[in-house]
Simulated scan of single mutants.
Amino acid sequence: MQEKLLFDSHCHLNSDSFDENDVLEMIHTARDQKVVQILVPGYDMKSSERAIELADNWQGVYAAIGIHPNDANGTTDEMYDQLREWAKLPYVVAIGEIGLDYHWDTTPKEVQFEVFRRQIALAKEVKLPIIIHDREAHADIVRILQEEGAREVGGIMHCFSGSWEMARDCMEMNFMISFGGPVTFKNAKRPQEVAKKIPLDYLLVETDSPYLTPEPYRGKPNQPLYVRYIAEKIAELREMDFADVCEITSANAERIFKVRNPFVSM
Protein backbone atom coordinates (compact mmCIF):
# COMPACT_ATOMS: atom_id res chain seq x y z
CA MET A 1 0.00 0.00 0.00
CA GLN A 2 1.26 3.45 -0.94
CA GLU A 3 1.04 6.58 1.18
CA LYS A 4 -2.38 7.40 2.64
CA LEU A 5 -3.35 10.25 0.31
CA LEU A 6 -6.84 11.69 0.83
CA PHE A 7 -9.31 13.64 -1.30
CA ASP A 8 -11.75 15.97 0.50
CA SER A 9 -14.61 15.78 -1.99
CA HIS A 10 -16.56 18.75 -0.58
CA CYS A 11 -14.96 21.68 1.24
CA HIS A 12 -16.03 25.34 1.29
CA LEU A 13 -12.68 27.09 1.20
CA ASN A 14 -14.73 29.77 -0.59
CA SER A 15 -16.75 30.48 2.56
CA ASP A 16 -16.82 34.03 3.90
CA SER A 17 -15.77 32.45 7.20
CA PHE A 18 -12.25 32.06 5.80
CA ASP A 19 -9.86 34.85 4.83
CA GLU A 20 -6.81 34.42 2.59
CA ASN A 21 -4.53 33.55 5.50
CA ASP A 22 -6.99 30.93 6.75
CA VAL A 23 -7.11 29.29 3.33
CA LEU A 24 -3.33 29.31 2.98
CA GLU A 25 -2.84 27.73 6.39
CA MET A 26 -5.57 25.11 5.91
CA ILE A 27 -4.27 23.96 2.54
CA HIS A 28 -0.69 23.67 3.77
CA THR A 29 -1.74 21.91 7.00
CA ALA A 30 -3.91 19.48 5.06
CA ARG A 31 -1.15 18.68 2.59
CA ASP A 32 1.32 18.07 5.39
CA GLN A 33 -1.08 15.35 6.53
CA LYS A 34 -1.58 13.96 3.00
CA VAL A 35 -4.96 15.54 2.27
CA VAL A 36 -3.74 16.62 -1.14
CA GLN A 37 -6.87 17.07 -3.25
CA ILE A 38 -9.90 19.25 -2.46
CA LEU A 39 -13.13 19.98 -4.30
CA VAL A 40 -14.56 23.44 -3.59
CA PRO A 41 -18.27 23.70 -4.51
CA GLY A 42 -20.09 26.95 -5.18
CA TYR A 43 -23.46 27.80 -3.71
CA ASP A 44 -24.15 31.11 -5.47
CA MET A 45 -22.47 33.18 -8.17
CA LYS A 46 -19.95 34.85 -5.85
CA SER A 47 -18.85 31.61 -4.19
CA SER A 48 -18.69 29.83 -7.55
CA GLU A 49 -16.35 32.52 -8.85
CA ARG A 50 -14.27 32.22 -5.68
CA ALA A 51 -14.07 28.44 -6.15
CA ILE A 52 -12.74 29.03 -9.65
CA GLU A 53 -10.11 31.45 -8.33
CA LEU A 54 -8.93 28.92 -5.76
CA ALA A 55 -8.74 26.14 -8.35
CA ASP A 56 -6.81 28.41 -10.69
CA ASN A 57 -4.31 29.28 -7.96
CA TRP A 58 -3.80 25.91 -6.28
CA GLN A 59 -2.75 22.64 -7.84
CA GLY A 60 -4.94 19.82 -6.55
CA VAL A 61 -7.88 22.15 -5.81
CA TYR A 62 -10.88 21.84 -8.12
CA ALA A 63 -14.06 23.89 -8.50
CA ALA A 64 -17.75 23.12 -8.78
CA ILE A 65 -20.19 25.85 -9.76
CA GLY A 66 -23.87 26.18 -8.99
CA ILE A 67 -26.74 27.79 -7.13
CA HIS A 68 -27.78 26.31 -3.78
CA PRO A 69 -31.54 26.00 -3.14
CA ASN A 70 -31.34 28.53 -0.31
CA ASP A 71 -29.86 31.04 -2.78
CA ALA A 72 -32.23 30.25 -5.65
CA ASN A 73 -34.46 33.33 -5.35
CA GLY A 74 -33.81 35.81 -8.13
CA THR A 75 -31.92 33.41 -10.39
CA THR A 76 -31.75 34.86 -13.91
CA ASP A 77 -31.02 33.61 -17.41
CA GLU A 78 -27.80 35.61 -17.28
CA MET A 79 -26.67 33.56 -14.29
CA TYR A 80 -27.20 30.31 -16.18
CA ASP A 81 -25.27 31.76 -19.12
CA GLN A 82 -22.38 32.61 -16.78
CA LEU A 83 -22.40 29.13 -15.28
CA ARG A 84 -22.31 27.71 -18.78
CA GLU A 85 -19.23 29.79 -19.62
CA TRP A 86 -17.47 28.88 -16.38
CA ALA A 87 -18.15 25.20 -17.06
CA LYS A 88 -15.72 25.38 -19.98
CA LEU A 89 -12.77 25.99 -17.67
CA PRO A 90 -10.51 22.95 -17.21
CA TYR A 91 -10.54 23.03 -13.41
CA VAL A 92 -14.36 23.24 -13.18
CA VAL A 93 -15.24 19.58 -12.69
CA ALA A 94 -18.88 19.53 -11.50
CA ILE A 95 -22.14 21.45 -11.21
CA GLY A 96 -23.01 22.02 -7.56
CA GLU A 97 -23.93 22.18 -4.97
CA ILE A 98 -27.52 22.13 -6.15
CA GLY A 99 -30.69 20.46 -4.93
CA LEU A 100 -33.46 21.00 -2.41
CA ASP A 101 -33.56 22.26 1.18
CA TYR A 102 -36.78 22.04 3.21
CA HIS A 103 -35.17 22.88 6.54
CA TRP A 104 -34.83 26.62 6.01
CA ASP A 105 -37.93 28.47 4.84
CA THR A 106 -36.05 30.87 2.57
CA THR A 107 -37.00 29.77 -0.93
CA PRO A 108 -40.43 28.55 -2.15
CA LYS A 109 -40.42 24.93 -3.26
CA GLU A 110 -41.57 25.88 -6.76
CA VAL A 111 -38.50 28.10 -7.16
CA GLN A 112 -36.21 25.39 -5.79
CA PHE A 113 -37.70 22.86 -8.25
CA GLU A 114 -37.19 25.13 -11.25
CA VAL A 115 -33.61 26.09 -10.40
CA PHE A 116 -32.73 22.48 -9.59
CA ARG A 117 -34.17 21.19 -12.86
CA ARG A 118 -32.47 23.88 -14.95
CA GLN A 119 -29.10 23.13 -13.41
CA ILE A 120 -29.51 19.40 -14.03
CA ALA A 121 -30.22 20.27 -17.66
CA LEU A 122 -27.13 22.48 -17.70
CA ALA A 123 -25.01 19.67 -16.27
CA LYS A 124 -26.21 17.35 -19.03
CA GLU A 125 -25.48 20.03 -21.63
CA VAL A 126 -21.90 20.62 -20.43
CA LYS A 127 -21.38 16.95 -19.52
CA LEU A 128 -20.36 17.45 -15.90
CA PRO A 129 -21.43 15.45 -12.83
CA ILE A 130 -23.78 16.96 -10.25
CA ILE A 131 -23.20 17.55 -6.53
CA ILE A 132 -26.50 17.22 -4.67
CA HIS A 133 -27.54 19.12 -1.56
CA ASP A 134 -30.46 17.30 0.08
CA ARG A 135 -31.88 18.48 3.37
CA GLU A 136 -35.16 16.93 4.46
CA ALA A 137 -36.18 16.51 0.81
CA HIS A 138 -35.23 12.90 0.09
CA ALA A 139 -38.25 11.77 -1.96
CA ASP A 140 -38.37 14.89 -4.14
CA ILE A 141 -34.62 14.74 -4.78
CA VAL A 142 -34.85 11.18 -6.10
CA ARG A 143 -37.99 11.94 -8.10
CA ILE A 144 -36.53 14.98 -9.85
CA LEU A 145 -33.21 13.26 -10.57
CA GLN A 146 -35.15 10.41 -12.18
CA GLU A 147 -37.50 12.70 -14.12
CA GLU A 148 -34.64 14.84 -15.44
CA GLY A 149 -32.49 11.90 -16.52
CA ALA A 150 -29.62 12.81 -14.21
CA ARG A 151 -28.27 9.28 -14.66
CA GLU A 152 -26.71 10.57 -17.88
CA VAL A 153 -24.06 12.49 -15.92
CA GLY A 154 -24.32 11.03 -12.41
CA GLY A 155 -22.63 12.74 -9.52
CA ILE A 156 -22.44 12.81 -5.74
CA MET A 157 -24.96 12.75 -2.93
CA HIS A 158 -23.19 15.22 -0.67
CA CYS A 159 -23.15 14.51 3.09
CA PHE A 160 -25.65 11.70 2.65
CA SER A 161 -28.36 11.48 5.31
CA GLY A 162 -30.94 9.28 3.62
CA SER A 163 -31.89 5.64 3.99
CA TRP A 164 -30.25 2.59 2.47
CA GLU A 165 -33.17 2.37 0.04
CA MET A 166 -32.55 5.94 -1.11
CA ALA A 167 -28.83 5.21 -1.47
CA ARG A 168 -29.65 2.29 -3.77
CA ASP A 169 -31.92 4.49 -5.89
CA CYS A 170 -29.16 7.07 -6.18
CA MET A 171 -26.46 4.53 -7.03
CA GLU A 172 -28.71 3.18 -9.79
CA MET A 173 -28.53 6.70 -11.28
CA ASN A 174 -24.69 6.72 -11.13
CA PHE A 175 -24.48 8.82 -7.98
CA MET A 176 -21.75 8.22 -5.43
CA ILE A 177 -22.55 8.41 -1.73
CA SER A 178 -20.42 10.82 0.30
CA PHE A 179 -20.11 10.87 4.08
CA GLY A 180 -19.06 13.80 6.22
CA GLY A 181 -18.63 14.60 9.90
CA PRO A 182 -22.06 13.30 11.04
CA VAL A 183 -20.98 9.71 10.38
CA THR A 184 -18.57 10.09 13.33
CA PHE A 185 -21.28 11.24 15.76
CA LYS A 186 -22.29 8.74 18.45
CA ASN A 187 -26.01 9.03 17.68
CA ALA A 188 -25.63 8.79 13.89
CA LYS A 189 -27.01 5.28 13.58
CA ARG A 190 -28.53 5.58 10.10
CA PRO A 191 -25.50 7.15 8.35
CA GLN A 192 -23.26 4.58 10.02
CA GLU A 193 -25.45 1.69 8.91
CA VAL A 194 -25.55 3.00 5.35
CA ALA A 195 -21.78 3.60 5.35
CA LYS A 196 -21.25 -0.07 6.18
CA LYS A 197 -23.27 -1.20 3.14
CA ILE A 198 -22.23 1.15 0.33
CA PRO A 199 -20.30 -0.71 -2.38
CA LEU A 200 -16.72 0.51 -2.28
CA ASP A 201 -16.89 1.85 -5.84
CA TYR A 202 -19.55 4.36 -4.70
CA LEU A 203 -17.95 5.57 -1.45
CA LEU A 204 -16.61 9.11 -0.86
CA VAL A 205 -15.51 11.19 2.13
CA GLU A 206 -15.79 14.94 2.69
CA THR A 207 -15.62 17.61 5.39
CA ASP A 208 -18.13 20.25 4.20
CA SER A 209 -15.79 22.71 5.93
CA PRO A 210 -16.38 24.93 7.83
CA TYR A 211 -19.52 22.99 8.80
CA LEU A 212 -20.28 19.57 10.32
CA THR A 213 -16.95 19.09 12.08
CA PRO A 214 -16.30 15.42 12.93
CA GLU A 215 -15.39 13.96 16.28
CA PRO A 216 -13.08 14.62 18.09
CA TYR A 217 -13.28 18.31 17.05
CA ARG A 218 -17.05 18.65 16.94
CA GLY A 219 -18.10 22.19 17.86
CA LYS A 220 -15.04 23.81 16.30
CA PRO A 221 -14.73 25.09 12.70
CA ASN A 222 -14.13 22.29 10.24
CA GLN A 223 -11.18 22.14 7.85
CA PRO A 224 -9.89 19.76 5.12
CA LEU A 225 -7.40 18.12 7.46
CA TYR A 226 -10.27 16.56 9.40
CA VAL A 227 -11.37 14.39 6.49
CA ARG A 228 -9.00 11.78 7.86
CA TYR A 229 -11.27 11.32 10.92
CA ILE A 230 -14.19 10.52 8.62
CA ALA A 231 -12.10 8.03 6.68
CA GLU A 232 -10.92 6.49 9.95
CA LYS A 233 -14.51 6.10 11.15
CA ILE A 234 -15.57 4.42 7.94
CA ALA A 235 -12.59 2.10 8.16
CA GLU A 236 -13.67 1.20 11.70
CA LEU A 237 -17.31 0.66 10.69
CA ARG A 238 -16.37 -1.54 7.76
CA GLU A 239 -13.48 -3.30 9.54
CA MET A 240 -11.07 -2.17 6.82
CA ASP A 241 -7.57 -0.77 6.81
CA PHE A 242 -7.50 3.02 6.95
CA ALA A 243 -5.02 3.03 4.04
CA ASP A 244 -7.50 1.12 1.89
CA VAL A 245 -10.30 3.60 2.61
CA CYS A 246 -7.96 6.46 1.67
CA GLU A 247 -6.95 4.82 -1.59
CA ILE A 248 -10.48 3.77 -2.59
CA THR A 249 -12.25 7.05 -1.79
CA SER A 250 -9.53 9.10 -3.48
CA ALA A 251 -9.70 6.94 -6.61
CA ASN A 252 -13.49 7.28 -6.63
CA ALA A 253 -13.31 11.08 -6.39
CA GLU A 254 -10.72 11.23 -9.16
CA ARG A 255 -12.96 9.06 -11.34
CA ILE A 256 -16.16 11.06 -10.89
CA PHE A 257 -14.38 14.39 -11.33
CA LYS A 258 -12.11 13.08 -14.12
CA VAL A 259 -8.92 14.38 -12.52
CA ARG A 260 -5.52 12.95 -11.66
CA ASN A 261 -3.65 13.40 -8.43
CA PRO A 262 -0.83 15.90 -9.15
CA PHE A 263 1.00 14.75 -6.01
CA VAL A 264 1.31 11.04 -6.68
CA SER A 265 5.08 11.19 -6.22
CA MET A 266 4.75 13.30 -3.05
Rank of each mutant, 00 (worst) to 15 (best):
V35I: 05
Q59I: 12
K34M: 13
D22M: 10
S17C: 07
M45L: 14
S15C: 09
L13C: 12
E53S: 14
F18Y: 14
V23N: 09
V61R: 03
K34V: 06
R50C: 11
Y43N: 02
I38A: 02
H28D: 13
I38W: 02
E20T: 08
Q33R: 03
L39W: 04
I27G: 04
V35S: 02
G60H: 05
P41S: 08
D22G: 10
L54H: 07
N21Y: 11
D22F: 11
Q37F: 01
M45S: 06
S47G: 01
K46C: 05
D56P: 04
E49C: 03
R31E: 10
N57H: 14
H28P: 00
G42I: 09
I52T: 05
H28A: 13
F18D: 09
K46H: 10
D44N: 14
N57T: 12
D56K: 07
Q59V: 13
Y43T: 08
N57S: 15
A55V: 05
R50Q: 14
W58V: 08
M45G: 04
L24A: 07
G42W: 08
Q37N: 11
V35F: 00
V23S: 10
D22C: 12
T29G: 00
V40W: 03
K34E: 10
Y43F: 12
R31W: 06
Y62C: 00
V35G: 02
L39M: 15
E25C: 12
Y43D: 01
H28Q: 14
R31N: 08
Q59N: 15
W58C: 07
A55Y: 00
T29L: 05
D56S: 09
L39D: 02
A30I: 01
Y62F: 13
N21A: 14
V61F: 04
D56C: 02
G60R: 06
S15Q: 07
G60F: 02
E49N: 09
F18V: 10
K46S: 11
